[in-house]
Design a protein around this nucleic acid. Structure first.
Length: 427
RNA sequence: GGAGAGGUGGCCGAGUCGGUCGAAGGCAGCCGCCUGCUAAGCGGUUGUGGGGGUAACACCUCACCCAGGGUUCGAAUCCCUGCCUCUCCGCCA
C-alpha cells in the first residue's frame, strides 16, 4: 500500500509512476476525499477536546456535590455531533483505504520501462544448453516412460492440473526440497515451516487481497490456501516493531502452494509446469531500506546458486514496468533452459517490495538511538519452484537411451541413486 | 464437541461503587549522580499512530488498555458480538 500522505502530496509522481505500469489512475477523487478527511479530523478533534475539558469540570462539580445538570445538558449536544463526525470519518477513511489497497506499488527507477513482457530485459546468462544429438523429449514423455508421474490418476483423484508423483519421481521431488533447504540454511536463512492456510489479514498484508481473490482457493472457514510461502512467512512479523540490531532477517521455507490459475485456460495444459498445487522453497528477507537493493541482488544470486549447483543453464530477466507484479517495486525472474520446449521458462521470481507490504502488514523497526519507527523493506524469491526444477532436471539430464542422470549435487539426497531408467530402478 | 477462566504499556502486574487513567507498583532499558571496580543506592526518564506546529527540535491536540458495536455528559472499568489464549472432559493424526 502506498502512503496516503505521500499520494495526496505527490499526485503527479504517483500518476507518472503508475503510468509506466500502463495504468491511468485518476487521483482527483482520492485527493478530494483526503481533503475532506483532514477537515473532519480537525473538527472532530476540537469537539473531543471540548468534551474532555467539560467532562473534567463535571467530575469536579460532582465531587463537590454541586449541580452539573446544565453542563451535562450542553454536552449531550456535543457528544451527538462527535458521533456524527466519527461516522463520517469512518466512512471516508474506509473509502480512502479501499482505494489505496487497490493501487499497485510504484516501480523503482532502475526498472526498465515497457508495456508488457516484450519489454523485459535479459541481464545475464549462465551455462550453455546441452547439445543432445537426438531429439530431446518433453518431461511428461520422460515421466510416463519411467512411470514417475501419473497425471491420469491425479486427475481421477483431484482433477486437471494435479500430479501424482511416484517412485523415484516422488523421491526426486523430496530430494530437491531437502537440497534447497540445506543450501539456503547454510547461507544464513532460518528455516521455518509455516501454516499453509492463512486468514484474510495475512493475504491483505502481502497484497493478494483484496484485488486477487479469484486467484486463490478459499475454504468455508474464511481461510485461504497460500499461493506462495511469501504470505505466511512475510506475515510472521505483521504488526511488529523490530529492533534494528535484529535486521536483516532471512527466512527460508518449504511449503506446498495452491493457485486457481483462473484465466490460464489453454496454457501449459500438459505436464508439470502449471499446477493447482505445487511445492516451492521460498526465500524471504526483512531489511533496512537503505540495503534493500543490495539485498535483492544477493537474494537473486542465492536463488541462482541453486541452479548453478544443479548445473542447469539459466538466464536472469529484469521485468519491465508493465510486467512486474502488483506489490513489487522491482523483480528479477530466473528462467531455466528446458530442452523439451526449446526455451527458457520461469523458475524463480525475486522481488523487492520496498515498504509496500510492510505498510500493509505494519512491519516496522526502530533505529538505535532514534525515536520513532520506520517501515522495513521486504523481499522474497523462489529458491526454487520444486516442480519446475524437477522438469528441468528430467529434460536437461535425459540420455539417448531415455534414462535420466541424477545431478551430482542431488545424489546424496537420492540415497545414492545416480540414474533413473537404465540401472536397477524401482518403479 | 461439552464445561470453565482470561485478554491492560518491552515484560510482570494493579485498576475500588464508571469521572482528575496513557493508565499505580515492580522489572528491564536510557540519562545523570554517587562509589577504587562491580554490585547496591539516589534523582530523572522511557509507547504507537493521526492532525497542527517548527528550518529542525520544542510544543499543542486527538486517538489507542484484543477487535467491532452499544449504554452514558463521561468507559480500561458496564452490556452485546467476534477473535484469540489457557484449564478440565470427550475425540483424534
Amino acid at each position: 500500500m502506498l502512503d496516503a500522505r505521500f499520494v495526496r502530496e505527490n499526485p503527479d509522481i504517483v500518476k507518472n509512476a503508475l503510468a509506466k505500469r500502463g495504468m491511468d489512475v485518476d487521483l482527483v477523487p482520492f485527493i478530494a476525499l483526503e481533503d475532506e478527511r483532514l477537515v473532519f479530523i480537525k473538527d472532530a478533534d476540537e469537539l473531543r477536546e471540548k468534551r474532555n475539558k467539560v467532562s473534567e469540570e463535571i467530575a469536579a462539580l460532582k465531587r463537590r456535590k454541586e449541580d452539573a445538570s446544565a453542563l451535562i445538558e450542553e454536552m449531550k449536544d456535543v457528544s451527538a455531533r462527535i458521533k456524527e463526525y466519527e461516522e463520517k470519518l469512518n466512512d471516508v477513511g474506509r473509502r480512502t483505504r479501499e482505494f489505496l489497497l487497490t493501487l499497485p506499488n510504484l516501480p523503482n527507477e532502475s526498472v526498465p520501462v515497457g508495456r508488457d513482457e516484450t519489454g523485459n530485459v535479459e541481464v545475464r546468462r549462465w551455462g550453455t544448453p546441452r547439445e543432445f544429438g537426438f531429439t530431446a523429449l518433453n518431461h511428461w514423455d520422460l515421466a510416463e516412460m519411467h512411470d514417475i508421474i501419473d497425471f491420469d490418476r491425479a486427475a481421477k483423484i483431484a482433477g486437471a492440473r494435479f500430479a501424482l508423483m511416484k517412485g523415484l519421481g516422488a523421491r526426486l521431488e523430496r530430494a530437491l526440497m531437502n537440497f534447497m533447504l540445506d543450501l539456503n540454511t547454510s547461507k544464513g536463512y532460518k528455516e521455518v515451516f509455516p501454516p499453509i492456510l492463512v486468514n484474510a489479514e495475512s493475504m491483505t498484508g502481502t497484497g493478494q487481497l483484496p484485488k486477487f481473490e479469484m486467484e486463490l482457493f478459499k475454504t468455508f472457514d474464511e481461510l485461504y490456501l497460500i499461493p506462495t510461502a511469501e504470505v505466511p512467512v512475510t506475515n510472521i512479523h505483521r504488526a511488529e516493531i523490530l529492533e534494528e540490531s535484529k535486521l536483516p532477517l532471512y527466512y527460508t521455507a518449504y511449503t506446498p502452494c495452491f493457485r486457481r490459475e483462473a484465466g490460464s485456460y489453454g496454457k501449459d495444459t500438459r505436464g508439470l509446469i502449471r499446477q493447482h498445487q505445487f511445492n516451492k522453497v521460498e526465500l524471504v528477507k526483512f531489511v533496512k531500506p537503505e540495503n534493500s537493493y543490495d539485498e535483492l541482488e544477493k537474494l537473486t544470486n542465492d536463488a541462482e546458486d541453486i541452479l548453478r549447483k544443479l548445473e542447469l543453464p539459466y538466464r536472469v530477466i529484469a521485468l519491465c514496468t508493465g510486467d512486474i507484479g502488483f506489490s513489487a517495486a522491482k523483480t528479477y525472474d530466473l528462467e531455466v533452459w528446458l530442452p523439451g520446449q526449446g526455451r527458457y521458462r520461469e523458475i524463480s521470481s525475486c522481488s523487492n517490495f520496498e515498504d509496500f507490504q510492510a505498510r500493509r502488514a505494519d512491519i516496522r523497526f526502530r533505529r538505535e538511538g532514534k525515536k520513532g519507527t520506520e517501515f522495513v523493506h521486504t523481499l522474497n524469491g523462489s529458491g526454487l519452484a520444486i516442480g519446475r526444477t524437477l522438469v528441468a532436471v528430467l529434460e536437461n539430464y535425459q540420455q539417448k537411451d531415455g534414462s535420466i542422470l541424477i545431478p551430482e549435487a542431488l545424489r546424496p539426497y537420492m540415497g545414492g541413486v545416480e540414474r533413473i531408467g537404465a540401472a536397477p530402478v524401482c518403479k
